[in-house]
Write a protein that binds this DNA or RNA. Structure first.
Lengths: 103, 103
DNA sequence: TATAGTTAGTTACATAAAGTAAGTAACATA
DNA sequence: TATGTTACTTACTTTATGTAACTAACTATA
């Protein structure tokens, strides 16, 4: 593997290209949401959602907030770093609008 | 799985989120290239590169051209549809520049 | 003629990632 | 005591990817 491609870009893609990551962030752009909301909104399995949210937290893109209610309520929201992906996702959205046909 | 998210967007992500797809397109934005050039530039295995190029051809994003030389030379290039992903990839690039730290 | 070299793949097999469905902790309510 | 809730985790299956050897269709070299 040469080093022809920018390592920051490759790092970014290694995050974004993991299955579900982009959809999770896209979903959280609507506002903070809880585990089961994200799960049912995008159709990801609990096992993988749990994994991804931990990864995204570790990357500083998602924040996890515990509300001590009963039953416990946990909210996931985007940090600035997470939120700043919005323009990129919007570009993908507008590409999709132009080039993907409705099935 | 609800249908809260735009199906075109989901389709777009199902293409882009496959491992290597974005890097392959990014690489081809530099100009048409042959199999082994892409392979060594981004470090993808031949097995997967072959699979991805077929997918991208089927999606109308990549064009495969055979030059009858010896040994045979095959060039892969972007179609308009493939090329039009450039703004999205540029957005990811600039996000990476801002938010990813050099290791 | 036999041997080796070229590109663009394919094949067989091993490992890693994701899907599925059941289980758990820590409560509250009926 | 049994049931329900949320936010996960665990065990197991299926799918995706990595690795490395192999093939087709030539040409060049010994």
């Amino acid at each position: 593997m040469d080093q022809t491609i920018c390592p920051k870009f490759e790092k970014a893609l290694s995050i974004m290209n993991k299955r579900w990551t982009s959809l999770i962030i896209f979903q959280l752009l609507e506002g903070s949401q809880r585990f089961c909301e994200i799960e049912s909104a995008i159709g990801v399995s609990g096992r993988v959602l749990s994994e991804r949210l931990k990864d995204l937290e570790k990357e500083g893109m998602v924040k996890r907030t515990v509300h001590d209610e009963t039953p416990v309520r946990i909210e996931y929201s985007l940090t600035d770093k997470g939120h700043s992906l919005k323009p990129a996702l919007n570009q993908i959205q507008s590409w999709a609008d132009q080039w993907i046909e409705a099935e």
